[in-house]
Design a protein around this nucleic acid. Structure first.
Lengths: 189, 189
DNA sequence: GTCTATAGTCTGATAGAC
DNA sequence: GTCTATCAGACTATAGAC
């Protein structure tokens, strides 16, 4: 539709509800209430409920991509540092912001085919970034295994944190990143 | 309610739909059609939709627990063999049967508080099994790290396979288990 | 850009016949 | 144990006034 600041703010609020309740359980009335408007007014900003989901997922993936690129640009160039930067960036978008990126990962299946098609390249760009960093780690013998499987196992371990992580606990996303890297890397010999 | 063979069969069919569509999107009419009856008849077997979910999750967790115990009873007693048996059992209940255990993991949040309370001990028993096996691996220096984090990372890597695994592909659950163990273990030195 | 009002559909669940 | 018929409520989305 458009990408006014207003729409951006509404998208941000929708993301929070989608994480809390799940997309299917979130009604347009709940969304409108969260936004401080009536449900009818919502459809001035979004064509339908699907479009809200697409906006959230686009926002979440774009944001994750940006933060990951930033982190990679500002860390040491050795494979371990890059791996750690990538994992930390991923966890921070999932656990600190706790919003749009979670929706992108957990509600992807709810996108209709057209939206999935339109957003596929964004998702691919993010996954490619991961695969590059993992390729470097594999080439340096920091990790061992099949590239495809390693990337999926690592992403799984990271993405599942959403289910158990307690932000009020004593572990930071950075702690988690460090521990995961320690678990899967073979120290220099 | 009860646990007749009929109810067991209906539960099995419900599990399949819950995996395919998600609990929220699955209507009682869809469930009834899958079962070959009309929607009104469904409520002769289950009090309400919630009870169907609870039945599926109970079945899925109990089955996973049974299969895991079997696998542990019939494998070598060294920590690596036990870890492998556990991972393979977990993946087989998720990827081969592709049913109730997936629902137990992915729709747990949809249980109402009473059901969650009633099924909590089953879930705990299964997680305890995992922690025992991981403790042995940690004690043997096969894996390194914090017990809590290691168990969650491993379960995350395993549980996430549901999202990308293609049963028609060339990798078996056993292959996946072997590769995951290889990734996280430090070979004897 | 937001409101009120409501159309039209689908939902989980119940009642009573067979 | 299954059926038909239906209720009452919730749902997404629209129309038109302001």
């Amino acid at each position: 539709m458009n990408d006014s600041p207003r729409r951006k703010e509404l998208t941000r609020q929708a993301a929070q509800l989608f994480v809390q309740e799940g997309f299917d359980r979130t009604t347009v009335r709940m969304l409108a209430q969260e936004m401080g408007i009536k449900s009818g007014s919502l459809f001035h900003h979004f064509r339908d409920k699907q479009e809200i989901l697409a906006a959230v997922i686009e926002e979440g993936t774009q944001n994750a991509l940006m933060i990951a690129r930033d982190a990679l640009d500002n860390c040491d160039s050795n494979p371990e540092a890059r791996l750690h930067a990538m994992a930390r960036a991923h966890l921070e978008t999932l656990l600190t912001d706790r919003n749009a990126h979670v929706v992108a990962l957990y509600e992807w299946r709810r996108l209709d085919p057209e939206a999935r098609d339109h957003l596929g390249h964004l998702r691919d760009a993010y996954e490619t970034l991961w695969e590059e960093v993992l390729d470097e780690a594999l080439a340096a013998d920091l990790i061992r295994g099949d590239r495809f499987l390693v990337s999926r196992f690592v992403m799984g371990a990271l993405n599942w944190t959403v289910r158990w992580y307690d932000p009020r606990g004593e572990r930071s996303p950075e702690d988690l990143a460090r521990e995961l890297i320690a678990m899967i890397t073979h120290p220099a010999r």
